[in-house]
Computed example of a mutant assay.
Amino acid sequence: MDPSLHKHYHDEEFDPKGLVDTYFCDENFPLIDESVGFPLKKLHETFSSGRVRGDTLIDISSGPAVYQLLSASDIFKEIIVIEFSDPSIQELEKWLKNDPETPDWSYAAKALCDLEGNREEWQVKEDKVRRVVKQVVKWDVSKDKPLDPVVLPQVDCVISFWCLHLISKDKEAYRSNLRKFASLLKIGGHLLLFGVLNGTYYMIGEHKFFSLTFDEKFLREALRDAGYVIEHMDVLPSRKGCDLVDGEHLVYVIARKEREV
């Protein structure tokens, strides 16, 4: 199937609960170690090392995901969440209000507590995320100023979690979005970027969605051109244990904003 015919992340048919239930909350998902275990481990290592700290973090991630904030909530006093679709925002706001009908994140929360050596604290972790998330803001991909009319202060850290390759329809859009993410960071602030290399699609239910194809070389060049310095990069081959996704590698980047572009 021609990738140009795939649906896009912010389409009205996007099912945010289906996304997180399939990829992040089901411990029987064949690639759960990649979609949940890998990022939890990397964020735990990053934050526990002390190399990334600050007062305020912006999260720009896939759907109403929250497990990437479990470690961050121990470090940052305030978290601002940016989302791309109204259904995802609605689902996230329900979770923040402790609505029982939202996805069950206990698998991820318990997995992080195992890494930290205290499995009994997983509900405390979730409640802390609810307390430190202060704002949920929409990013309109159709606008040059996607947060308009909202104006946010520059922050210490941005997490971009499995989303940049989904919202960018081509490589120029990817570069542009990296620059927009950088505009949210203070000089010296960090971007923590999770993505997929050389993927073309992912499935939600019966719908096939677009994923931008690019390699490590392109990613390194795009980050440099957007004003970042790469401090660390992990590239992990995917086990490709199911046909719901087709990415060749997972990638995690710690990049410091060095200059305004």
Score class of each variant (00 low, 15 high):
R130V: 00
V136Q: 06
D225H: 08
I80N: 01
V229F: 07
L185Q: 09
V196M: 06
F24Y: 11
L69H: 04
E83S: 04
K171L: 15
H8S: 03
V132H: 02
K171N: 15
M1C: 12
L185A: 02
V150M: 14
H190I: 10
F214N: 13
Q154Y: 08
E172A: 15
P237W: 09
W105C: 04
S49V: 01
I230D: 11
K77Y: 15
R256V: 09
M203K: 02
R175I: 12
G247H: 11
T22V: 01
V151K: 00
K97C: 14
A109Q: 03
D26M: 12
A109F: 01
R175T: 15
S142G: 05
D33R: 04
P149I: 01
L147Y: 09
D114T: 15
C157H: 13
G37Q: 03
A65W: 01
R259A: 15
D59E: 11
P16S: 02
F214H: 14
T22H: 12
P64G: 00
S88Q: 06
Y202K: 08
K77S: 14
P153I: 00
I58L: 06
L115A: 05
P87N: 09
F194W: 09
A222Q: 09
S106P: 14
M233S: 06
H232C: 11
F14G: 01
F181E: 10
V235E: 02
V245S: 12
M203R: 07
D156Y: 07
W122N: 00
R130I: 07
G195P: 12
F210V: 01
S4M: 01
L164G: 02
V66G: 08
Y23D: 05
G195V: 04
H10N: 00
V136F: 01
E248A: 02
S73D: 01
D104F: 00
V20F: 00
H165C: 02
